[in-house]
Amino acid sequence: MSVTATSTVRPAARPAAADRAAAVRRLGRVVPYLQAAPLTLVLLVFLLVPILTIVVVSFWDYDSIRIYPDFVLTNYQELLGSPVTWKIYLNTLKFTALAWLFTLLIGFTVAYFLAFHVQSLTWQMALFLLCTIPFWTSNIIRMIAWIPFLGRNGLLNQALVGAGVVEQPLEFLLFSDFAVVLAYVHLYTLFMVVPIFNAMMRIDRALIEAARDAGANGRQILWNVILPLCKPGIAIGSIFVITLVMGDFITVRLMSGGQSASVGLVIANEISLLQYPAAAANAVVLLLVVTLMVAALLRIVDIRKEL
């Protein structure tokens, strides 16, 4: 360091240079906090404070015109005391379970094909990209795009009637629970493909060779070697799919055509009726449920290790 060089010439300079070095060191220690500040600020203002606002407002009172600061439990009593709430939660959980099951099965198969059956890295990346591109396009349009397929006069019904499988066009294809789950699978399967593919690409190929040498057949390798090593990827994919479906309202509204309900849709409806405290109470309960589900899944995976 230059500190020693200057100190031999001018003894008086030593404390000043040392001070400067200390100042630089102190500045160096402050730097990470300055670098983290913008992210912290955005998340405080647009995540933490809004969520706290929801919690506070869930205890407020309201009438048809405005909301009042208060401390009442009526919003929660009405919510939890109503059998409709439990029915809607059950329906949302049903959607979540179905979407999770299908996205996992399809996502795992697709990732397995890409990771273990496509030999060249270029092809692997090209096909992987092909799977992820729809993620960067509009979800609403991808839902609308099912209308000409599933509608009463849609392609599927035309084909089924034409082939003589059914006499009348099937009514349940569009605007039904079937359409809702189909849209979830369509929209969210890539949230499973990406983390599972990532986990598969990290598996040391020597492990599979070793299993084969030890006499394991293809199914045993898949079940006893690949599947356990994919667990973190499956957990991350599951977190995405479960939280997206649990909080969804737009897919249920568009694809069920008002025939079905979800917790998110109830919240959205209460918002449009300006019943903010009721919506807030609903939101707090939903947040608790989702947090519990995510906490359970985080026991399987350490996210920071997976990046």
Binding site: L43, F46, L47, V49, P50, I51, T53, I54, V57, I239, T243, L244, M246, G247, D248, F249, G264, I267, A268, I271, Y276, A279, A280, A283, L286, L287, V290, V294
Partner: peptide, 17 residues
């Protein structure tokens, strides 16, 4: 948690704020 909190809650929270 910003990633897993349902979007409708963010919308509602910021709107209320």
């Amino acid at each position: 948690s910003s990633l897993v909190i349902p979007s409708i809650l963010i919308s509602l929270g910021i709107g209320l704020m």
